[in-house]
Design a protein around this nucleic acid. Sequence first.
DNA 1: TTCGTTAATCGTCGATAGGCGATTGTAAGG
DNA 2: CCTTACAATCGCCTATCGACGATTAACGAA
Lengths: 107, 107
Amino acid sequence: MQDQDLELSELAKALAHPARLRILRLLLATPGCIGGEIVDAVGLAQSTVSEHLRILKTAGVITGDIAGPRICYALNPGALQPLVAFIDMLTPPVGDVCGVPGREETS
Amino acid sequence: MQDQDLELSELAKALAHPARLRILRLLLATPGCIGGEIVDAVGLAQSTVSEHLRILKTAGVITGDIAGPRICYALNPGALQPLVAFIDMLTPPVGDVCGVPGREETS
DNA sequence: TTCGTTAATCGTCGATAGGCGATTGTAAGG
DNA sequence: CCTTACAATCGCCTATCGACGATTAACGAA
C-alpha cells in the first residue's frame, strides 16, 4: 500500500518547481505543437529547459513526439490522477458532493 | 498569475517525499493526537521526523497543537486545494461534468 | 553533401535537501 | 527544587537539484 508513496512522491517532485509549473501552463495555453518557444517563455537556458522537460516527460506528465527537427510536447493529464486521488483521500471532511466543494476554503 | 507558481511548487514540494506522504497517511488513519508514534512508524530518527513535520507544517498541510509535553498533529486538507485546482485546470479534456469524472482512469 | 536549426547530453559549479547524533527547551511528575 | 519524557534545534555530512555553457545528435533545406 505504501509502495505507492514512491510513485506519488515522484509525481509531486515533478510539480515541485516553478519553472515546470510554468511549462505546464504554457503547454495548456498552446494548443498546437511548440518547441523552443518554451525556452523563450520561461527565460532559462536551453539546456535547463530541456532538463525540466525531461523530468516532466520521465514523470509521465507530458509527452514528446518528434516532429521533424523540433519536438511536439503535449500534456498528459491522466498521469497526475494518482496524486489527485491521494489528496482527495486526505480530504473527506468537507462534502464530496460534487467536484470542488470546499472552494471557499475552511481558512 | 504565474505568481502562484511559487506557492504551488512549495505545496508540491511538501508532498515530494515518501516519508512525508507516509506521515500524512498515518495522520489520516489516526483520529486522535499522536506525537512520537510517528517517529516509530516511519522508522527514521526523531530529528529527521521532526524536520519533515516542520516542512509539512510550514506548507500548511498539517497543524500542530501543543498538548502538554507532546504535540497533537492533525491534517489540514484545505491547504492542498490550490494544488488540486491546478491539476484540475490541466485536465479539462475529459468531461468536467461533476468533480471527479475520470475516476475509472483513462487507461 | 553541406549548412542551419533544434533538442538532448555532458561537465561543472553552487545551492538545497535529507539524514544523523547530540544538544537544548519545555512541561509534567516526583 | 530535580528528574524525566518529548519535541525542536543545532552542527555536520552526503546526495541530489538547478542552472549554465559547450558539445553532440538529428533532421530539413539548399
